[in-house]
């Protein structure tokens, strides 16, 4: 019995180890080849000869004009923060009102917001461009932030309203009797209690904003002075996709910091995701 169990355990560990290795192979290939000239990449793509390894190509990618790495990171980070500020900042009061008003109209309103979760954002981007044009926001960062926030609001509001419903009503009623106004109750009593769900929404929205390519590419336009990580990589790599001296170092520069952040924050990121799933 115990023998059988040990065998089973060994098989399980072996299967998981092999699969984990398979998941990491692309990263290994990317890292190794970022330090090699084209000829060597083509001849021996899987090994790294330390005698001929060079950081020249990484330096070239770092200085590439089509993908300014630091600015790309700054713009992507700005989008993460700005979109979350708009989406969370507008969803908190709306979700509070919806959760605390037992009226049919507000239930319908919630359904109206939730319906947005089923609209694929990049598909509706084409007509959204014409809305942005008529508002004079096409090609601008505010326009981009507003569109991306709009796509985040349905999910954010949905999980927020479900969470606020679980908070005891007696808290806000006590504060109201003490004479606190709606905004005050909302931001000083309810909002601090929402910390776990706000963290979840922040993480999920951040991943969405960070990885979005179509929205910045189409709203800012390919000639924009602002490049995100994704539009920068596209500009640097798409026309040279077989020039591996450019491809691998560029991709390495694009993913290294986010992988580092992920390695440090993985518990929060994956925990936030499963918390969102349980509530949603």
């Amino acid at each position: 019995m115990t023998g059988k169990r040990t065998v089973r355990r060994t098989v399980r560990v072996a299967v998981v180890a092999v699969l984990s290795a398979a998941m990491l192979v692309p990263m290994y290939i990317m890292v190794v080849n970022a330090f090699k000239p084209q000829q060597e990449i083509l001849l021996s793509p899987l090994s790294l000869d330390f005698a001929t390894a060079t950081t020249d190509h990484l330096k070239a990618a770092w200085q590439s004009t089509s993908f300014p790495v630091i600015e790309g990171y700054a713009v992507s980070l700005f989008l993460v923060l700005a979109c979350n500020a708009v989406a969370i900042g507008t969803a908190v009061p709306a979700a509070y009102a919806i959760a605390r008003t037992p009226k049919l109209l507000f239930r319908i309103l919630l359904m109206f917001f939730v319906a947005g979760m089923f609209v694929p954002a990049q598909i509706i981007l084409v007509p959204a461009i014409f809305v942005l044009k008529s508002l004079g926001l096409m090609g601008t960062l505010p326009g981009l932030v507003l569109f991306m926030s709009a796509t985040m609001i349905p999910f954010t509001l949905f999980v927020f309203s479900a969470y606020i419903r679980m908070l005891p009503r007696s808290l806000d009623e006590a504060a109201a009797i003490d004479g606190a106004g709606r905004q005050r109750i909302l931001w000083t009593i309810v909002f601090p209690l929402m910390r776990p769900i706000v963290a979840t929404a922040f993480v999920l929205n951040a991943l969405g904003a960070w990885n979005d390519f179509v929205s910045p590419q189409l709203i800012l336009g390919p000639g924009s002075e602002f490049r995100t990580i994704t539009t920068g990589v596209y500009a640097a790599v798409s026309t040279y996709s077989t020039n591996y001296e450019i491809v691998f170092p560029t991709l390495l520069l694009a993913v290294a910091p986010i992988l580092l952040i992920f390695a440090v924050m993985q518990r929060h990121i994956m925990g936030g995701l499963s918390a969102g799933a349980v509530k949603g």
Binding site: T90, P93, A94, R100, T101, I153, L157
Partner: peptide
């Protein structure tokens, strides 16, 4: 309470 939903509604 309805007023509180206005900003989210406007953007969405």
């Amino acid at each position: 309470n309805g007023l509180l939903t206005v900003p989210a509604l406007a953007v969405y």
